[in-house]
Write a protein that binds this DNA or RNA. Structure first.
Lengths: 199, 199
DNA sequence: GCTGTTACATTGCATCTGCATTGGAAAGAC
DNA sequence: GTCTTTCCAATGCAGATGCAATGTAACAGC
């Protein structure tokens, strides 16, 4: 066998090039030639590592969910080590928001995919599952916190979990249009968490 | 002069055809030929009423904001007649959500435009202004309500206005992916309003 | 060294896209 | 009635796009 290449790593590199194009010029500008040029390779390599354009887009989406889960997971794991439910929820919310250039890029691309899925009626299963997943995560944490007497009285935790998860999505788009920066977003989230937690 | 045609009405019709395509097959599928076929006219008519494709897309966006403002405005005006600030805020929030097939279609198209703008960095001014505008509307209503002693004590109304407006954006996307229906969305909004208003 | 597999470049092609042009039909003004 | 203005159909064109076909260099195993 000749020059061995790590196909998965190569695909990740090509996906990065795709992200750069999609986040700066839109998903419409993602063509085989554009990705090839951005990655600094010949157009053939794109075809070589992705049978078809749709495969390339699919792989890039899978990669972006990986990166997102990785990023959020790091923050959540760190917060979970403290055993503080409030910190975990905070990490869940802030962990998916565009707080720096890199995450902003990925969030922009994510929105682009989201729009395509919505406008086609055929939404990827994981696309649909993301919000309920976040709701469940938050609801679990709220449940634990209540058992430990850390939750203010008179709250409907299911509705609170929904509201928090929904606010996360809203914050994401609000930050992408520049209406809120990371600092203000954190303030709003903390303000809401203050209403839920005692102490 | 010959057969007089209402150009604006014609453009509105063509915009509707564009909406149908964009909401069902994505903005990428919006081509001059596709819009012509969907509207049941020749491709030339598209060119005749829109100098260029970008003009067509721009006009459609302008039209969709008109329709949105109209719809929300109706609900808000009705609520405003009661003089109930809570009802006004409720109308502001629910008035922009996809509660039926028509509004769902328009919201989907709106998201598509939003994604294009975000991924190009060059966001239309009104796109950026929408969220702050909603915040101001809600904040004003909350201010009035507080003066009338209808607001629960210990709240930061600016943060509450931000949180409500942000939740609106989140609900919109949540509903588009099918995570929430109109009923559940109203429940969540009412739950939050219950926390803000007394009585 | 020979061979075969892997990785890659180049080229070509059918299709689609936005846009322009040319020619003509229809409806009112005079 | 004819004529001018408005509206519209058909066709053409240059560029871009996804994809396929062909040719070639590098390296492992015998």
């Amino acid at each position: 066998m000749p020059k061995r290449v790590d196909h998965e790593e190569k695909r990740r590199d090509l996906a990065e090039a795709l992200f750069r194009i999609a986040s700066m010029r839109g998903l419409q500008a993602v063509t085989l030639r554009a990705v090839a040029a951005e990655a600094g390779v010949s157009m053939f390599q794109i075809q070589y590592y992705f049978p078809t354009k749709e495969d390339m887009l699919r792989h890039a989406w899978q990669r972006i969910t990986e990166l997102g889960a990785e990023r959020a997971g790091r923050g959540i794991a760190e917060a979970a080590r403290t055993g503080d439910e409030r910190a975990v929820i905070r990490a869940c919310v802030l962990g998916v928001l565009p707080t720096d250039e890199r995450s902003r890029m990925l969030c922009a691309v994510q929105i682009a995919y989201f729009a395509v899925d919505v406008t086609r009626g055929s939404q990827a299963p994981d696309q649909q599952a993301m919000l309920p997943h976040l709701v469940r995560l938050i609801a679990d944490q709220l449940g634990h916190a209540r058992q430990r007497g850390r939750i203010a009285p008179g709250l409907d935790l299911q509705l609170e979990a929904d509201a928090l998860a929904i606010m996360t999505g809203g914050l994401l788009s609000g930050m992408l249009v520049g209406a809120y920066d990371a600092t203000r977003a954190a303030e709003i989230v903390d303000y809401r968490l203050d209403q839920l937690f005692t102490g």
